[in-house]
């Protein structure tokens, strides 16, 4: 077991190696991304504030990510509740189709949507990116919400209905508060996925690039790389904070419904 622990630690180093480099080069006072390091600077972070195209991309990405997260979570609630609460013929196939984007190569989703949109003569724009992102985020939302709905005791809701609440008010007063941590966790995860997603945005975005599409464009210019490193550092920090919050809510949900903690998002 000693060697297994050593292996695990080496594996974690492998997992974290790329991310650990981000801040190192973000604060490095040199335009070339290589060792040895030159000196400490905040130059690249300051430069981030002066690029209007970047700010437009960030704003665009935030709008897309919030919309995608909201829609995907709403769809996820429907699917997770239907899947955990009701039995109906063809359930496996229907849920299978909805979960399909989880394993489908993103480029397939992207080009098939692109073909249809172009054939219908619809203009590409932020909304087409949202359409694609909702497709990608919904399976993750369902996976998170499934565990929230699964741990729910059906008799609580039935008791509320027996005591005179309507189906909707019992859902709002009993079910919703109990699965709320799952919903928040799903919103955050969907938001993070949409914010990071590149391929679908690359194919379906119109004239306004999302943040990853903007970064992709910048990677071609070596002199822009240190600024991108600074940007990446901020993005990683933001993701980690969002995830820590999501994990906190997931655990609270687990504690609230009184089950054992199985850990993990997936």
């Amino acid at each position: 077991m000693k060697s297994l622990r050593l292996y695990a630690i080496l594996y974690l180093i492998f997992l974290y190696a790329p991310i650990a480099l981000l801040p190192i080069f973000a604060f490095n006072d040199g335009t070339v991304i290589a060792f040895p390091l030159k000196g400490f600077t905040l130059e690249w972070f300051k430069e981030l504030l002066t690029i209007p195209a970047l700010h437009a991309a960030v704003l665009n990405s935030l709008i897309i990510a919030v919309s995608s997260a909201l829609i995907a979570t709403c769809l996820g609630i429907c699917a997770a509740r239907a899947g955990t609460r009701f039995a109906f013929p063809g359930k496996k196939g229907i849920l299978g189709l909805i979960m399909l984007p989880l394993v489908l190569p993103e480029i397939i989703v992207a080009v098939s949507l692109l073909v249809v949109l172009l054939q219908l003569g619809l203009p590409l724009g932020s909304w087409t990116v949202v359409l694609g992102h909702v497709l990608m985020c919904t399976p993750f939302s369902i996976a998170i919400l499934n565990s929230a709905f699964q741990s729910l005791d059906v008799s609580l809701e039935e008791a509320a209905i027996d005591l005179g609440e309507t189906r909707w008010s019992s859902f709002r007063l009993i079910t919703l508060p109990l699965v709320m941590p799952g919903i928040i966790s799903s919103l955050l995860i969907a938001f993070t996925i949409s914010l990071d997603e590149f391929i679908i945005a690359f194919f379906l975005t119109g004239t306004n690039p999302t943040l990853p599409v903007y970064i992709w464009g910048q990677l071609r210019f070596p002199q822009k790389i240190p600024v991108i490193m600074a940007l990446g550092t901020i993005l990683v920090l933001a993701s980690v904070i969002l995830l820590a919050i999501a994990e906190y809510f997931r655990r609270r949900g687990v504690a609230r419904t009184g089950q054992a903690d199985a850990g993990g998002f997936l």
Binding site: C74, L75, A82, R85, F88, I94, L95, L97, I98, V115
Partner: peptide, 27 residues
Amino acid sequence: EASQGYFLVAPPFLYALLLLAAPLAAI
């Protein structure tokens, strides 16, 4: 129970049908 299930699963299913299954068929 089945019709309630269908009613609930309809929005995500239609979404996947229109924006995933149909485009895949189109391609």
